[in-house]
Design a protein around this nucleic acid. Structure first.
Lengths: 131, 131
DNA sequence: CCGTATCCAATGAGATACTG
DNA sequence: CAGTATCTCATTGGATACGG
């Protein structure tokens, strides 16, 4: 290119202090563990803490709590506490969180067609004769 | 919901070991500093190391090199070395990298309409009476 | 069950100085 | 110019144990 099509330049003018208008969203949506959590909440609906813990492999309760609190604060997840014995807490994705659905689908689609290319590129790069 | 619409369930069945099919792509595309770099390369076209360094505020040469190498290895960026004195190196986004354009546009769009809601949610959460 | 508290290891990233 | 080398620090995250 060098000057041709500008497809994602749309809101580039709104750049605040960084040269990247999508920086904030990335921090919110693609922080560590947030995508698996949102994905699980979306595909399995409202569920309890342990269910999430069991479905998201290898996450510790500490980290799960931290991320859920952050997601709740950002309005992506709704936490419902039932004062019983034993206590019961349920998490569900919010309207705002659900608005990410098309975006995630888009991402999954890109992944399906282009992830192999990335892996191919990696292989090619790694097997270069130490140029 | 609890069982209603499933919009991004499409490839959920392909879950490998994690409960999230977009995990790998997130690591590739939304790692730290990669979005500003890709964005800058896309909007300003082919450019040299220093130009990138100057445009992406507050990034150090060490980190910039690391991320560029990773992006090059993943096939998202093409590095061209001109053996001159002083040396000249140019970076440009690849075809594969350019294929992210619609996705980034989508993200920017989501951001424009929903980021205010996130900030509102944060404000609401923070000003709750320590329930 | 649903977390919290504490300690600790690993990774990421800034500062600074230096080279072909 | 285009990095590399070293050092240090801050943040994340894992392991473990415990509490309401």
């Amino acid at each position: 290119m060098t000057g041709g099509d500008m497809t994602w330049t749309a809101s580039a003018a709104t750049a605040p202090d960084l040269a990247c208008p999508i920086g904030p969203v990335v921090d919110i949506v693609f922080s560590r563990w947030t995508t698996p959590i949102l994905w699980t909440l979306h595909t399995h609906g409202r569920q309890r803490f342990v269910e999430l813990e069991r479905r998201i492999t290898k996450i510790t309760p500490k980290v799960l709590t931290q991320r859920l609190r952050q997601l709740e604060r950002d309005g992506m997840v709704v936490r419902t506490y039932h004062p019983e014995v034993p206590p019961r807490v349920e998490y569900e994705i919010s309207e705002l969180g659900r608005s990410l659905a098309p975006l995630f689908a888009h991402l999954a689609e890109w992944s399906a067609t282009n992830l192999p290319k990335v892996e191919q590129a990696r292989h090619d790069y790694d097997s270069e004769p130490t140029a």
